[in-house]
């Protein structure tokens, strides 16, 4: 059994592969950030990625929607292999939502325009329809009254919820989260995590880099622990928080818990 398939319960194993990484290697100049990563994310699975700073967590999930280009190995997203073909990349990107640590909302557009932009220009939706969907999404993340404001006028937690709504407006099959709560004040973290839990319960396939252990324990189907560009251990939350196998995992968890 390869490391990618570790800890697959029978239920998970029966599902479709949404993200498959096989031997993914990535260099920044001479520095190797990923050293042959094997990970499989199944349909409707929530996978949380853990690891110390600089271990390559961001690099890995950014390779999945081609914000970074890997040099060796294969990445297959929902059956489409990532190659240099721009059409493939645009297709994958429009089906994979991404939420950033720094929100990255478009400051010159209102909240509503932030959300409707991609549906109108990429999905070619009619404006009225896109706006209706956007308002529904804003209801879902709990801030419909902020639709006409600009991002600069919102709190961090509100901005991050808009960013999630913006990704969801593209009706993605997969959502990637790169430390979505790390730039937030403690009192705002819960409101963003609640939205993410909601999404997970709704059956979204998610890959989440986070240091929120409570979230990982409650929501994750599986956890991945990375260090120095390697996947060290994959397992269920139960496995991780009761008896992790590897020494390095134990050390990391003891520091963070």
């Amino acid at each position: 059994m390869s490391i990618a398939d570790q800890a697959l319960t029978d239920d998970l194993a029966a599902r479709r592969d949404m993200i498959v990484c096989r031997g993914v290697k990535k260099w920044f100049g001479d520095f190797q950030a990923l050293r042959g990563v094997d990970v499989t994310v199944k349909d409707r699975e929530v996978m949380v990625v853990l690891g110390p700073s600089g271990s390559g967590k961001s690099t890995l999930i950014r390779c999945i929607n081609r914000l970074e280009v890997h040099q060796e190995g294969d990445i297959v997203v929902d059956g489409v292999e990532l190659t240099n073909d721009t059409r493939n990349i645009e297709k994958i990107r429009s089906e994979v939502g991404m939420v950033f640590q720094q929100f990255n909302l478009f400051p010159h557009l209102t909240v509503l325009d932030n959300i409707t932009l991609a549906p109108i220009w990429v999905r070619k939706k009619a404006k009225a329809e896109a706006e209706r969907t956007a308002m529904e999404l804003l209801e879902r993340v709990g801030i419909p009254e902020q639709a006409a404001k600009f991002p600069g006028q919102l709190s961090g937690g509100q901005q991050q919820r808009v960013a999630i709504a913006r990704s969801l407006a593209m009706e993605p099959k997969i959502m990637l989260f790169d430390e979505p709560t790390s730039a937030l004040d403690p009192e705002m973290i819960a409101e963003v995590l609640d939205v993410m839990k909601d999404l997970a319960r709704g059956g979204m396939t998610m890959m989440v880099v986070t240091h929120e252990m409570g979230f990982a324990r409650e929501v994750a189907d599986r956890l991945v622990f990375m260090e120095s560009g390697d996947v060290v251990e994959v397992g269920t939350p139960e496995h991780f928080f009761t008896n992790p196998k590897e020494e390095r995992t134990k050390l990391f968890l003891s520091q963070i818990l």
């Binding site: 645009e90 429009s94 994979v96 720094q102 991609a118």
Partner: peptide
Amino acid sequence: RGQYEAADALGLTTVQ
């Protein structure tokens, strides 16, 4: 740079 990445992640073309 985040602005470019957010636009890319939404699937906008380079011209868009």
